[in-house]
């Protein structure tokens, strides 16, 4: 019996040793940087540049891999189930909160660990340039007089833009038809007059606003944005609506602290790199890196916000095993 125990203990020790690779410094091989949306979009362009800059800092290639689908859930599930060794990183966004609260996956955002935030951007409320409303108040007054008449386009049902639209409509106390027309049709639907207004990430609306095709009435943000200085926040106008689109990094639960710290440092340095700051200045997002602890606090608060809006709109479903 005793010998058996010894043998077992030895075997266990051997297995443990085998499992622990020779203690090399992280990272020693390329890192997979998973982007939850398709090529060419905002998440992709910003993510690819950050990955590139992170690679320069870490000394290994950080390979951007697009795994689009299901509002980001494909990527989050992939990274959640990946080996917690720091070699699989998700380029998250507000979608990590929306896609988990809509009830298609059986976990919450907290099923992953979060390295930190990189940037955020406002989601302006925009109308066509020749629309009669000059301010958000104009729209609110008109809308209150005509409940259920106006249509507001968003990227998809339960997405961040949809939730921001709901939040703004709640704040101005107005009933509209929300049109989940999709990212590709969102801008076109406002231009064709099919939708009276839209909520879009700033990076998706900036070009049309600069070209004078649409007018940004307000942003549901805490402060004004540097590239659209003249657009007021909803709060300034006396409306309580607040939801920004953030982007950051997540890793599988159980990733060693040292690895997370290293990734976090590289992420912050890459975010502050000249190339990334230059992209931010042209595209309109705000680079504001947050470390692990602050990001977790932010995520918890944002998750309550998202959950609240979704519950109220009847979009919230939990499939979490309880």
């Amino acid at each position: 019996m005793k010998t058996l125990k010894t043998v077992l203990a030895a075997a266990a020790a051997a297995a443990l040793l085998a499992a622990l690779p020779a203690r090399a410094e992280f990272p020693e091989k390329p890192i997979q940087f998973v982007i939850p949306f398709g090529a060419g979009g905002g998440a992709d362009i910003e993510g690819r540049l950050l990955a590139d800059e992170m690679g320069k800092i870490l000394g290994v290639t950080v390979v951007p891999v697009n795994k689009p689908g299901a509002g980001g859930a494909i990527t989050y599930s992939h990274v959640k189930n990946a080996k917690p060794d720091g070699y699989t990183v998700a380029w998250n966004s507000t979608s990590i909160l929306t896609s988990t609260n809509i009830g298609n996956v059986d976990y919450e955002y907290s099923a992953l660990e979060h390295i930190g935030r990189v940037e955020y951007q406002p989601m302006p409320f925009a109308v066509r340039a020749d629309a009669p409303w000059q301010t958000l108040k104009d729209f609110a007054d008109d809308c209150k007089a005509n409940p259920g008449k106006y249509k507001v386009a968003n990227s998809s049902s339960g997405s961040a833009t949809h939730l921001a639209a709901i939040a703004i409509m709640n704040a101005i106390d107005c009933e509209v038809i929300h049109l989940p027309v999709g990212v590709k049709r969102r801008n076109a639907s406002v231009l064709s007059g099919e939708a009276d207004a839209m909520v879009a990430p700033l990076t998706g609306a900036l070009n049309l606003a600069k070209a004078g095709k649409i007018r940004l009435l307000a942003i549901p943000s805490a402060g004004r944005n540097a590239v659209i200085q003249d657009v007021p926040t909803a709060a300034e106008l006396g409306y309580d609506a607040h939801l920004d689109l953030f982007r950051g990094l997540s890793v599988p639960r159980g990733t060693p602290d040292a690895v997370k710290a290293k990734l976090s440092d590289a992420m912050i340095a890459a975010a502050k790199s000249d190339a990334f700051m230059a992209l931010a200045a042209t595209k309109g997002f705000t680079v504001a890196p947050l470390g692990h602890a602050e990001f977790e606090t932010l995520l918890a608060a944002e998750n309550q916000l998202v959950k609240g809006i979704m519950q109220q709109a009847g979009l919230y479903k939990s499939k979490k095993a309880n």
């Binding site: 509002g71 859930a73 494909i74 996956v105 049902s157 997405s159 979009l315």
Partner: peptide, 22 residues
């Protein structure tokens, strides 16, 4: 197969996350 375009709910995915992407 995948996510309902209007409601965001899962259709014919049989609980499979890959199927969720359509």
């Amino acid at each position: 197969v995948g996510q309902d375009p209007m409601m965001g709910t899962a259709r014919f995915t049989f609980g499979n996350t890959d199927m969720l992407g359509g």
